[in-house]
């Protein structure tokens, strides 16, 4: 098992416009919205990073208690999600701080653009998580359970403190945990992905 924290950069995953619009609360896009979306992609594209760090943890359950070796907590839905796995991949993915700067800028100048950039950032980091999980499965010839993040199904955000203590995200990725337990850069994701035998 690989206990070291590994950091890796990924190439830009393809953009899914439908998904971005969905995040922006748009069921349908008129011509102007489409133009806005395109210009947001053009502006953000060259500023985004696609960085991930991860490590492998041992796993066993005792009822609802999820035991990851380095830390453990009791949470039913996650225990169910990871049931039967002997190890999990714990990872953090980020598209970098430049996205937050762009969003902050247009938050002051153009809320329409800020909403679209927010949506774009969410789509980007999810696409990065997909790339990462695919890469793990292919390169190691394993199958991963659907990833599970703090905040999903009431998995408390407090778990972030444990995650940050073992993943060293601030040093590896410049992803920081704020006192509110949300992350900076905001377009970052931490997640557990169970390895199927």
């Amino acid at each position: 098992m690989n206990t070291e924290i590994i950091t890796k950069s990924y190439p830009q995953p393809p953009f899914c416009e439908k998904e971005i619009l969905r995040y922006a609360g748009c069921k349908a896009a008129n011509e102007e919205t489409q133009l806005l979306l395109q210009s947001c992609i053009d502006e953000a594209k060259c500023r985004l990073l696609y960085n991930v760090c991860w490590r492998e943890l041992t796993f066993d359950t005792d009822g609802n208690v999820c035991n990851f070796g380095l830390f453990s907590f009791s949470f039913e839905k996650l225990a169910k999600n990871l049931c039967g796995c002997k190890s999990v991949i714990l990872f953090c993915a980020t598209v970098g701080i430049a996205m937050d700067r762009l969003i902050a800028k247009y938050n002051r100048l153009s809320p329409a653009r800020a909403v679209m950039l927010q949506a774009l950032g969410s789509e980007r980091v999810e696409a990065l998580c997909d790339s990462f999980c695919e890469d793990m499965m292919k390169s190691r010839n394993i199958t991963l359970r659907p990833r599970f993040s703090p905040g999903y199904g009431d998995l408390p955000l407090a778990v972030q403190r444990d995650i940050f203590s073992v993943l060293d995200c601030s040093k590896r990725l410049a992803v920081f945990l704020n006192d509110s337990l949300l992350m900076s850069p905001s377009k970052s994701v931490t997640a557990f992905a169970g390895i199927c035998e």
Binding site: A24, G25, C26, A29, T33, L36, S110, P111, A112
Partner: peptide
């Protein structure tokens, strides 16, 4: 009435 969505509403507001 949900015929117009948030980004359009905001573009108009701007």
């Amino acid at each position: 009435k949900k015929t117009i969505y948030l980004p359009q509403l905001l573009m108009s507001a701007e």
